[in-house]
Amino acid sequence: MPDNVLMRLKNVSKTYIMGEIKVEALKETSLEILAEEVLVILGPSGSGKSTLLNLVGGIDSSTTGEILYDEKVLTDGNDRVLTSFRRLDVGFIFQFYNLIPDLTCEENVALAAELVPEPLEVQDVLHDVGLHDRRDHFPSQLSGGEQQRVAIARAVVKRPRILLCDEPTGSLDYETGKMVLRLLVDIRNKYHSTVIIVTHNSAIGDMADRVVRMRSGEIVEIIENENPLPPERIEW
């Protein structure tokens, strides 16, 4: 077992009960997530990739199996453990940004910074994502790419060990999408966090250290990428 394993998923499954039918979103799955890697989870819609991400991020609980983080069990149903995990160790980035409309860029970032004992400087992070000049703008005054960069800043400011991105480029145009991916890699390099990206865009897999392919709620293959491409060189 490599000693740089950050998270370990053991026989984890997730079944949703929707009215009278059961949907097996994730069949029994095991996976190890390594520290400081860029892991891309690829698959068509309904393949279980977002479910996997939500379980890893502690915003959903598994039906069976066990998730270990730093060799500590997250899946014992204790909301306080999960909340503290999300608070201190995880940064989430969504397709639809989910910014707080009543807070400016700076305040959205500060909102997250207030949660942890030693956050990054809000201003520094805003510089990193290139939005320092627009820090007093509200989400409704920003373009999609800018909103996503605020969301990234908000996730990063907490110094999370894991950055989870659910279709981060899904709502963005090609150029902006690539810029956002570049930012994610830069952040991994600068802050040594693990970056997990869920997408149906297989081109993004080229920038990953490892690619997990999923279909119908199962992992079908895990590819190790010896030479990941820089984001600006990938094409779709």
Partner: peptide, 14 residues
Amino acid sequence: QREMASLRVLGYSK
């Protein structure tokens, strides 16, 4: 709801 869910994801407690 959406804002509250976002906050919960950020790590705010119930």
